[in-house]
Design a protein around this nucleic acid. Structure first.
Lengths: 221, 221
DNA sequence: TCTATAGGGTACGGTACGTACCGTACTTTC
DNA sequence: GAAAGTACGGTACGTACCGTACCCTATAGA
């Protein structure tokens, strides 16, 4: 907050109806950023603002100011806050590995995968995800990092299936082929629901419970 | 939107620095609403605005205007949009029955319960719930109708347990006592996650899948 | 009848939105 | 290397809400 002080987007000191005595701008050096350089700077500013202020208090104006540009440059690229922030997340947010752990133990594989999915999400923070979900409305926010999104999103269930197939080779489970798609998405769905609705970080215990008390009983049948 | 037209909270037609020639207000009849009458009117207005505009586009000003009062009267009672809207929901939103169905069949009981929980939620709409979740921040939004909220919230798992106990009496399941709390909340958590992350209404099929493919396998072990 | 309370009208300062305009640095093209 | 085209940067504008403050007055209650 104390940050907001030197932040006015324009001095506007005085009536100044006189249109533009627009000389010697762009600092002494004529370094006017363009294209991807400017784009990067804006995304970086968005990312910084997000981390300092949180999603709710972040504004387009604030991002423009921090990037030392103006709203035009921002709006030209992203029409609203959701789009801007998802772009920033894609660029800067930690991503889950999305590789299949293979510890030789089904339970451990699952716990490892879930932990690996949730850690980046925790760093982004539930407040941001909630904000995005609320602002996104109908727009599918398609481009979001794959560890966010509705149940039907396919990648994560596929990983779980891989883990199960590995376990099947070792004889830990049987008939993996018969497991329904919905069951495959259960662990991720549950941990995400907890993430969204809880106001504390996801505990290891939560992950273990989901694996031990919910998912394993389903697939070990 | 076209609705916004006759909506200005105050004419403000002209400089009018002259403070208040405040006569003959309150319509001819000196009917000034107070206390619970006014409170009701505001909540009603909030509810109407919510249904017409949706959560995101609803504003405190709009509610005050629709209630034919001013912001003061609103802010005196509810300090922000979340509080106001949750109050309106408690007052006007359809509520789930929260009684235990007893059809004589476990599967049907579960499907009935889940359907009964989700129908009111659907009517409120996911957009509203998402908005509330985003705006609520830390505040526990404790007072929300019990069918909204995090996993740990106790009522619904208790209902599920009752259903299971009935089934146990009939011999459909055994050892209900041993079922972990987390398992009891799974059906509701899953359907709510689907509700929050999907942009279509919850299908009967979704409910049936959750019951048949997820929950029953866990408890029938 | 008097008094305290709260409703109602209005205004204000502030933030943010989204858009528009304009001059100009920089890029591209020939 | 000059001309033309882009899009960046500065600025301003109108609108919408927020949340608060102030004052007048209807109303309830003593």
């Amino acid at each position: 907050m104390q940050y907001n002080i030197n932040r006015q987007l324009s001095g506007n000191t005085k009536g100044r109806i006189t249109m533009s005595d627009n000389t010697n701008e762009d600092q002494q050096t004529g370094t006017r950023r363009r294209g991807s350089v400017l784009e990067e700077a804006i995304l970086q500013a968005a990312w910084d603002e997000l981390n300092e202020l949180g999603y709710a208090r972040l504004s387009m104006e604030g991002v423009a100011a921090r990037a030392q540009t103006n709203k035009n440059a921002v709006y030209r690229r992203w029409p609203n806050k959701v789009k801007l922030i998802t772009a920033a997340l894609i660029q800067f947010a930690p991503k889950p590995s999305l590789t299949v752990p293979d510890t030789g133990n089904l339970r451990l594989d699952l716990i490892t995968l879930l932990g690996g999915i949730m850690m980046p999400l925790q760093l982004i923070g539930a407040e941001t995800i909630r904000g995005i979900m609320a602002d996104a409305g109908q727009e599918k926010l398609a481009a979001l990092p794959s560890h966010i999104g509705p149940r039907s999103e396919q990648k994560l269930p596929a990983l779980i299936k891989s883990i199960l197939e590995n376990a099947e080779k070792r004889g830990e489970v049987t008939n993996v082929q018969a497991i329904r798609p919905r069951a495959l998405s259960v662990p991720v769905d549950l941990i995400r629901y907890e993430f969204l609705t809880t106001h504390e970080p996801i505990s290891d215990q939560a992950i273990e419970e989901i694996v031990d008390e919910i998912f394993l009983p389903i697939v070990m049948k």
